[in-house]
Design a protein around this nucleic acid. Structure first.
Lengths: 217, 217, 217, 217
DNA sequence: AATGAATGAGCCTTCATTCAT
DNA sequence: GATGAATGAAGGCTCATTCAT
């Protein structure tokens, strides 16, 4: 109740705005000047509240992670005993929801993509911790779906196939060059989800079949 | 024969080195200083030969495109009348070969990825022209594989599923955070190819089946 | 009786800590941040209590002067009628004691040295008042030792010779480059005193002799 | 003949001016802005020519050392076999000449004093090398003058007594607080030299005598 | 034709100080 | 009376570019 503590308000504002700027421009191109201008703060505020641009970046990431985790758990709320196909669907759905969430989460997605393709080295630890945690759900579902013959490598490749579809397709739908090229409907998240689920289940079935008859390769 | 014109040699050297630096650091973090140091040239050479950093970047891209196209055509040399499954396999193979080519072509891949995920806006035109051209082969193969019921959107989504697997999996195998996380064998390009082909054929079959019974969704 | 006023405690703590920081880093390199951190105070406390960094600096100096004067009078407690040689020895002893006092007084010495060699201009008045006062004892002793033929200039030069030995030798024994170079024993203050006394008495005798036979130069 | 190479002129100007500014303000208070303003250069010139402020500082020091060494050798041109008293006089003379040289050398003296009393840590290596070299002449002369009974420590203390007189007296004559206080004639370098020589010879004689009769202490 | 020298704009950061409570 | 929050000014440095030769 009542207005927030004075200091916290500025700090939150900075985190909010900095999240947007980092997501838009990437860490290196985001400047104190722009962040502070948009947050209506002095250029020294970042260093005052976060010690440095790096400190701000890390704080932004942590905050985005927390918000997102709470909102879109990657198990979709399903118990570990649920049908693995349903859990796969839930995972894909959650991934796409995270990406297309209009609020904070697309920022997280952007920042993660940038870190994966052009790392700053500043989020190494929290990012890999996060990614490791995110994998658990899908890896478990995949093990069940692929059956006991699947090696860890088989599982990982299938995981990459699925996550790659989510990340890349989302990028294609939403941004830049590819979007212009493909002329896809950015709003049809549901349709996209169904596509990826169907495609992936087919892919998984195919891999499973292949494992049963390895001679054919 | 006679010695090569001195100016041309410097220019080529710059293109060569700049390709590496742009690929390693991205456009924004690549500096005149580093490029010229590694090319043993004066810092003014870039502007002298290419007018600006932007000019150099564009020239580098064009040159990489040319070299790569000649080396790894995306139809794999197959005629348009060949078996569509074979053409799909050829496409995936060529994509992965381009990515894993130890020479120049991984540079092209890096630059394309960076442009897709963090566009500079400088390659908009040549990049989208290139991507449009690259699509043709796979889109044709997919149309045949998915059958006449597939809408253009279905085809595009499948295309994205396949390309997404290639791009993202390659990234996962080769670089940074994800590689550390997954502990995959970076050399097994052949195994990766077979995985993506098998997974994709399964995925395509699943989508085709789904188109025949649309009520199920 | 009764607990000390809270404000006074903070103020004293600030004076104490600021003395150390000014002595260690010099006025210019001493920062509000460091002083207040080490004094467990808010960064605004300095300006609140002392108006400005300058005000704090002056207050620190005054306080150090007071403490030191009480502890190590430069006449060594000897009456003005005592043997001038004894008074000279007492002066040198007191100077060195001030410098090597492990508590507060080496701070005063450091600050004076820094002001002499790299003046801030902020202590001009109190410092020159202090130095003028400090001179009195040795100047009087020197006049007696040099005899009536000595001009004021002769006296001053001898004074400088003696004080110079104290200040510089002390610096050499205790700090940085010179100490490393000379490898002297930092604890032998007594030995150093005896050296300077002996050297100076010899020097004074030589000057006195020279005054009697000015033709020789 | 003819005007100097273009680049070298700016570089020399910067060294020249920077020497003055470093000597006047000390390393920390000397700013790019002031140096470049006075050298009529852009603020980026320092980093262009010397890499950094530190680089400039080091270059300034080296240059001052070189010029000074050539102009005022501390042996005064005397052979090592000359009368030790003459060599002592030559040493003191050279030291004072270096300090009072109106051209570059007082800059060197200022910088050395600042480094000794408030080190930046940037000249540690060249400074201590230089000081070690400077000592040689006087140490040799002192060994002869003090006789075989003198321990290395005795020699060092006498050295400090002499150098201390030179440094401190010079400071007193020339700068700030002390000068105002003492009202000495800044131009009488010759008189000062004679004073320090006479005082020191007397001091040395006294120490030598003391070594012969150690019981008296 | 080619390059060493120079620069203006902008970046992150630090600091003493002031403000609002 | 005392302090957490905020700031304007300035600092060293980097960089793509331009200039003079």
């Amino acid at each position: 109740m009542g207005k927030p503590i004075r200091g916290q308000a500025t700090k939150d504002k900075l985190l909010e705005i900095a999240g947007s700027v980092f997501a838009e421009k990437g860490y290196r191109d985001a400047t104190h000047a722009e962040i502070c201008r948009r947050a209506h703060t002095n250029a020294a505020a970042i260093n005052y509240h976060f010690g440095s641009k790096e400190g701000l970046y890390r704080a932004v990431f942590e905050r985005l992670i927390q918000k997102t985790e709470a909102l879109y758990p990657l198990d979709g709320g399903l118990p570990a005993t649920a049908d693995p196909e349903a859990r796969l669907r839930a995972f894909i759905q959650a991934r796409l929801n995270r990406i297309f969430d209009p609020d904070n989460h697309e920022k997280l997605h952007r920042i993660c993509m940038l870190e994966i393709f052009d790392p700053t080295g500043l989020l190494m630890e929290p990012l890999s911790r996060q990614l490791a945690k995110d994998r658990e759900h899908i890896v478990r579902a995949l093990r069940e779906l692929l059956g006991p013959q699947a090696s860890p490598e088989d599982v990982t490749w299938c995981e990459m196939s699925i996550v790659g579809q989510c990340f890349f397709t989302a990028q294609g739908i939403r941004d830049g060059v590819i979007r212009t090229l493909l002329n896809l409907n950015a709003d049809d998240v549901k349709g996209l989800t169904e596509h990826i689920v169907a495609f992936s289940l087919g892919g998984i079935a195919s891999i499973r079949e292949r494992l049963r008859r390895p001679a054919e390769t």
